[in-house]
Nucleic acid binder design. Structure first.
Lengths: 105, 105
DNA sequence: CCAATGTTTCGATGTTCATCGAAGAATAGG
DNA sequence: CCTATTCTTCGATGAACATCGAAACATTGG
């Protein structure tokens, strides 16, 4: 699944789809919801795992995907790693869906 | 973490993830973009296939997913099937991302 | 009824990915 | 050091899915 090398860069559509895919999973939506429901917007892996009913390895995998998409940040403090939701990044995706005609080039 | 069998539908997160997944594919984003770029917002499968560089069977598959998610409608007129984009449905997903704290139940 | 065109379905194939348990890495505290 | 705790990585497994070519289906026109 490589891109046509003549096109200068992959589409908007490819990059936008990547960000949407990071969001398009029920577990990841719940993780973000849990983070957003915290006053500090952050929780550690060991707190999130029981909240979504999955093991730490699986939750760590999902948090990594969210971090790679720029939707959360991670910060180690002592033994714990705290993930924080970035509502602006999520809202930006929503704004693009609402306002911008999706690219078709 | 199981669903209440009394509730006819799965969670908010599950349903929202379903709609996001329908959108989270570069081909489907391009299809929607092409439809939106038409004054009538509609095109038939045979017109869309070359626009995204894929065969009719594959395009038909993607259009079916978009229709199942309520993002496009289909209408047969003679030999052709015209798909029409529903911008309000797309915008509604964007609005939910912007305004509503994502459910974590 | 037959042929042509457009569309979908079917079967097969390869990839992505969610999940798990086990093992490895990092950090804090005796 | 050594141990306990937390977190991530690794390897494996099964499910979902994007894609293709071929076959089936639908509609229109001769």
């Amino acid at each position: 699944m490589d891109h046509d090398p003549h096109l200068p860069f992959a589409d908007d559509a490819d990059r936008f789809a990547e960000r949407l895919k990071a969001l398009a999973d029920p577990v990841r939506l719940r993780l973000i919801g849990q983070l957003l429901s915290e006053p500090t917007r952050e929780l550690c892996t060991c707190a999130l795992a029981p909240l979504v009913g999955l093991g730490e390895p699986t939750v760590s995998h999902h948090l990594k995907r969210l971090a790679e998409a720029g939707l959360v940040t991670k910060e180690r403090r002592g033994v714990n790693v705290y993930y924080r939701a970035l509502p602006e990044a999520i809202a930006a995706i929503g704004a693009q869906l609402q306002t911008r005609p999706i690219s078709h080039t």
